[in-house]
Deep mutational scan, measured.
Amino acid sequence: SIKEIEKEEIIKVLKEVNFNKKLASEILGIPLRTLYKRLKEYGI
């Protein structure tokens, strides 16, 4: 599903940037606030 793909992509990017959420949100092209929402939604 799209949610699974998105979750995997978020985890992959977070690992690449050593869990720097600000940098991860910039790489993913989403606002930091949205990233936090996704992390909560996906239980990351």
Rank of each mutant, 00 (worst) to 15 (best):
1 S>R: 10
2 I>D: 14
2 I>H: 13
4 E>N: 11
4 E>L: 12
4 E>F: 09
5 I>S: 11
5 I>A: 13
6 E>N: 11
6 E>Q: 12
6 E>P: 09
7 K>C: 08
7 K>E: 06
8 E>R: 13
8 E>Y: 13
9 E>A: 14
9 E>C: 09
9 E>H: 14
9 E>L: 15
9 E>F: 14
10 I>K: 00
10 I>M: 10
10 I>G: 00
11 I>P: 01
11 I>R: 06
11 I>E: 07
11 I>M: 14
13 V>N: 01
13 V>T: 07
14 L>W: 04
14 L>H: 01
14 L>K: 00
14 L>Q: 00
14 L>F: 04
15 K>P: 01
15 K>W: 11
15 K>L: 13
15 K>I: 14
16 E>K: 11
16 E>G: 09
16 E>N: 09
17 V>E: 02
17 V>F: 05
17 V>K: 03
18 N>Q: 08
19 F>M: 06
19 F>A: 03
19 F>I: 01
21 K>M: 15
21 K>V: 15
21 K>H: 15
21 K>Q: 07
21 K>C: 12
22 K>W: 09
23 L>G: 02
24 A>T: 05
24 A>S: 02
25 S>C: 07
25 S>M: 03
26 E>C: 07
26 E>S: 09
26 E>N: 08
27 I>D: 01
27 I>Y: 06
28 L>Q: 00
28 L>F: 03
29 G>I: 02
29 G>R: 06
29 G>F: 03
29 G>W: 02
30 I>P: 00
30 I>D: 00
30 I>R: 01
31 P>M: 05
31 P>G: 08
32 L>T: 03
32 L>A: 03
32 L>E: 04
32 L>R: 03
32 L>G: 02
32 L>N: 02
32 L>Y: 04
32 L>M: 08
33 R>I: 11
34 T>V: 14
34 T>M: 10
34 T>F: 06
34 T>K: 08
35 L>S: 00
35 L>K: 00
35 L>C: 02
35 L>Q: 00
35 L>V: 02
36 Y>G: 06
36 Y>P: 02
37 K>R: 12
37 K>L: 12
37 K>W: 08
37 K>N: 10
37 K>F: 06
39 L>G: 01
39 L>Y: 02
39 L>C: 07
39 L>D: 01
40 K>E: 13
41 E>K: 06
41 E>H: 06
41 E>Q: 09
41 E>C: 06
42 Y>H: 07
42 Y>W: 12
43 G>N: 09
43 G>A: 07
43 G>D: 10
43 G>V: 05
44 I>E: 05
44 I>S: 04
44 I>G: 04
44 I>F: 10
